[in-house]
Design a protein around this nucleic acid. Structure first.
Length: 546
RNA sequence: GCGCCUGUAGCUCAGUUGGAUAGAGCAACUGCCUUCUAAGCAGUGGGUCAGGGGUUCGAAUCCCUUCAGGCGCGCCA
């Protein structure tokens, strides 16, 4: 619909000898402004030094294919509003049903490869709701880009090296001793949640008292590895319960074992960005836009988290993806200049990596903040929220907001709303359509080859509104892909459901009139196709009945 | 102190990258189930787009500034 209009306008420009880099086409916010509109005459008025309405008139006058429009008019300061003819709308909706993927999906990515890293929580504790937000956004963005013709790789970066996992091992070790009634101090800065006890118990189950007399130094590797691996398993399970899948799990340890870290440091050294000071090795981040230089090898000879991250991003960038996206919690935003300095130090433009920040989630229960203390191990996990609220609702709440908006997640509201929750409203539209089809089938009505129905029977204003809404999906989709904003799909689905429900209430689809029934079933089929496409992108289930 | 994010209806949030008279859901109130599912429908009220300047044909959107909230500013990850 948009493409057609765009090319028509461009043809006209050619005839009038006008050049404009891009023809902007938009969906007017009010129906009286037509189906599509363009403001092109307004910027042109500056160039051509003529009033915009005059220019708009010239454009319209030299239009070739006027028969697909019912009306073209100039409005406001110089908008050109287009209203399509019904016959054009009918032929388009027919195409939608005949070849849904061809019609809905716009190949914007053209096979370009995109790498998206998200969640990447340390395997030192269960996922919380903030991770859940990153997961929902990352997965939906991945699906969206994939649907938009990109080749997407979803990756989880596992911080299985370094101090934190070791501290996890020590925390579990202390709890293990305690379980065997042996006095052992729990480290002050150690991990304290119930899950530490669970891991310790698993060790008791499998190994009994084998390590009861051991010193931590001697069994550190065993406790550390056992603990983080079990934790990682839990993380993966929780993500699975949330419906999130990854193509790759990149281990930090592997970067050390495969010498990627060493290679990365050497690389930076060659480029002259490494120096020694105070017994430590530094990366000269201030050569770029960071405000401090950063330590990569500490006085004690240990690497920092940043060091392996340099190696990780170097590895990613050398795989020559067309686009690299990291999704981080907003509390890590101070880390961006540092990592972009690395990208540039390695000789790539800093735009090679896009960091999408996902803002904090405040967890409430009945308007009151839920006290969370990671130190004391008191926090609500993603799993608990999923059990209480449900995966679809949780996802929907995340996906009806821009990632950079601070989010208040009230457990009571999310649950109490469950009867009138927006996600059910949208899913219910799909379930209703299914039951219409079931009913039609029972009545012995043919529900195949709906594209052969007589679409011109869909002449009620509500039907035309729905058809136009359906035909605008590719535009919304395209906008969402380009902007990397899955939430646009969420809002669109709510609007579409918001048209279907009143229609359902006012009109009967299955009637004695065979031809009308076929036409309306076809319309329902088109709605169902679009709803399901949206569900798939957002990662929501599409229940047959509710 | 410096940096990043946010501020839109009572509440939670959209606002198509600068377009036309600023929208939706929830909450509140009034009606609607003998019908293809009432997780639904019809109707009513609700705004200094945080404040102030600026940029232009045109600003919730861009720039400056003030205020408020959140988050960062480690040889932690």
């Amino acid at each position: 619909m948009k493409k057609k209009l765009q090319s028509l306008i461009q043809e006209t420009f050619k005839k009038l000898n006008i050049t404009l880099p891009e023809v902007v086409i938009e969906l007017p916010k009010e129906e009286s402004f037509g189906d599509l509109a363009t403001p092109v005459a307004m910027p042109l008025s500056k160039i051509l030094k003529r009033p915009p309405r005059k220019i708009a008139e010239e454009i319209i006058n030299s239009f070739e294919e006027k028969d697909i429009f019912e009306n073209i008019e100039i409005a406001g300061p110089g908008f050109i509003n287009f209203t399509f003819s019904k016959s054009y709308l009918y032929s388009e909706i027919k195409n939608l049903i005949k070849d849904s993927t061809g019609f809905l999906r716009n190949n914007i990515g053209k096979g370009e490869r995109v790498h998206i890293e998200f969640v990447s929580a340390n395997p030192t504790g269960p996922l919380h709701l903030g991770h859940g937000r990153g997961a929902a956004v990352g997965a939906a963005l991945s699906n969206l880009l994939e649907a938009g013709g990109y080749k997407v790789e979803r990756e989880y970066y596992i911080n299985d090296a370094g101090k934190q996992v070791k501290l996890l091992g020590l925390s579990v070790f202390a709890r293990y001793k305690n379980l065997l009634d042996i006095d052992y101090p729990v480290p002050d800065d150690g991990y304290k949640g119930d899950y530490i006890g669970d891991i310790a118990q698993a060790i008791v189950r499998e190994n009994g008292k084998r390590y009861s007399d051991a010193a931590f130094e001697d069994v550190a590797d065993f406790f550390t590895d056992f603990s983080y691996k079990l934790m990682l398993k839990t993380v993966a399970q929780d993500l699975k319960a949330f419906g999130i899948i990854f193509d790759m799990w990149q281990s930090e340890r592997e970067l050390y074992e495969n010498n990627d870290v060493k290679k990365a440091i050497d690389d930076l050294k060659i480029h002259g960005y490494i120096y020694e000071k105070d017994g430590a090795v530094w990366f000269r981040a201030t050569d770029f836009e960071d405000d401090k230089d950063r330590v990569i090898i500490k006085q004690d000879g240990e690497y920092t988290y940043f060091t392996s991250d340099i190696a990780y991003h170097r590895k990613k960038i050398e795989k020559k993806f067309d686009e690299l996206i990291d999704i981080w919690g907003a509390d890590h935003h101070g880390y961006i200049p540092r990592i972009q300095a690395v990208i540039q130090a390695l000789g790539y433009p800093k735009e090679s990596l896009k960091v999408l920040l996902v803002q904090m989630v405040t967890l409430l229960r009945g308007g009151k903040p839920v006290q969370m203390s990671k130190r004391a191990g008191e926090f609500v996990t993603l799993k608990e929220v999923l059990d209480e609220v449900g995966a679809d609702t949780t996802k929907f709440i995340f996906l009806t907001r821009r990632p950079d908006s601070h989010l208040e997640f009230d457990l009571e509201v999310a649950k109490a709303q469950s009867a009138e929750n927006p996600v059910f409203y949208v899913q219910y539209a799909n379930a209703r359509i299914n039951s219409i089809f079931a009913h039609a089938k029972e009545q012995g009505i043919r529900i195949e080859k709906l594209e052969e129905a007589d679409f011109s029977l869909l002449s009620a204003p509500e039907e035309l509104r729905i058809i136009k809404k359906l035909l605008s999906y590719p535009m919304v989709f395209e906008g969402a892909v380009i902007a990397h904003e899955p939430h646009r799909i969420t809002f669109y689905l709510q609007e579409l459901a918001g048209m279907f429900h009143p229609y359902y209430h006012k009109y009967k689809v299955v009637t004695d009139d065979v031809n009308l029934t076929a036409a309306r079933l076809a319309l329902c089929e088109a709605i169902r196709i679009v709803l399901r496409d949206g569900f798939e992108i957002l990662g929501l289930s599409a229940p047959e009945r509710m």
